[in-house]
């Protein structure tokens, strides 16, 4: 099931579209390098990666892929082929989520590395000089894939139109919540992702980000959140009935 999901997410037209989208950071840093923008360097790389990659590209790629896991099987009438195999529904759900994790990591981690490499090469600093920046963004990307994926996967199990709700959460709530006062920003995933980045990258665009959560705690919160979402999705899936039209 996991292999089937990986093949589906990576080899269909959806996979090619999300693959192209995932490489936008490389397109951007390459453009900056070719245009010889004077301020282009590791600091500008950080400034661009949070709003462009984490808050747009990554959310879109995880949303499109994770919401398709169960809902498209239901909408496409292919779910009976899986439900008539000697595999429990929770196992099917977990296998699909595992397949999504692999596919999303394959789609989203390499562009971070290559974009960082182009930036370092342009700045002439060498790949190891700002390795904490690379490590920070790789960690944040991996955690975002896990957490957003779990959230959108849960939505795809419980909602008929998960994409709409996912868009609202991913692009509206996650974008505006940071500017709300008090502890409200803690109700978003991006808050913990930025906390991870701030904890791992001492100098950069997130230096001024106000958080009282350390990187390890933020990472733990994201992983626990993901586990809860996936378990809830599996439980709901187990109890669900599937009335499909021919």
């Amino acid at each position: 099931m996991t292999v089937l999901t990986i093949r589906y997410l990576l080899s269909t037209r959806r996979g090619l579209a999300t693959l192209a989208l995932s490489w936008i950071p490389l397109l951007l840093v390459s453009s900056l390098a070719l245009a010889r923008v004077p301020s282009f360097g590791i600091l500008l790389f950080q400034s661009l990666m949070v709003p462009l990659f984490l808050q747009i590209v990554l959310i879109f790629v995880t949303l499109v892929n994770a919401t398709s896991l169960i809902r498209e099987e239901i909408d496409d009438n292919t779910l009976p082929y899986l439900l008539t195999r000697p595999v429990s529904k929770p196992t099917l759900a977990l296998s699909k989520y595992a397949g999504y994790l692999v596919a999303a990591m394959v789609l989203l981690l390499p562009p971070v590395v290559v974009a960082y490499g182009v930036t370092a090469a342009y700045a002439g600093t060498g790949l190891g000089t700002d390795s904490e920046v690379l490590a920070g963004f790789l960690a944040a990307t991996a955690l975002a894939v896990i957490a957003y994926g779990a959230l959108f996967f849960f939505l795809s199990v419980v909602l008929r139109k998960p994409l709409t709700v996912g868009l609202l959460i991913g692009f509206v709530w996650e974008s505006v919540v940071g500017s709300l006062p008090g502890s409200v920003p803690k109700l978003s995933l991006i808050y913990y992702l930025q906390s991870v980045l701030k904890g791992m990258i001492p100098v950069g665009s997130l230096s001024g980000f106000a958080t009282d959560v350390t990187a390890p705690v933020a990472a733990t919160v994201l992983i626990v959140f993901a586990v809860i979402m996936v378990v809830l999705a599996a439980v709901m899936f187990q109890r669900m009935e599937f009335r499909q039209k021919a």
Partner: peptide
Amino acid sequence: IGYCPESNQLYGW
């Protein structure tokens, strides 16, 4: 059991 659903939808890819 082996089940053959009415729908002709398959994994086209």
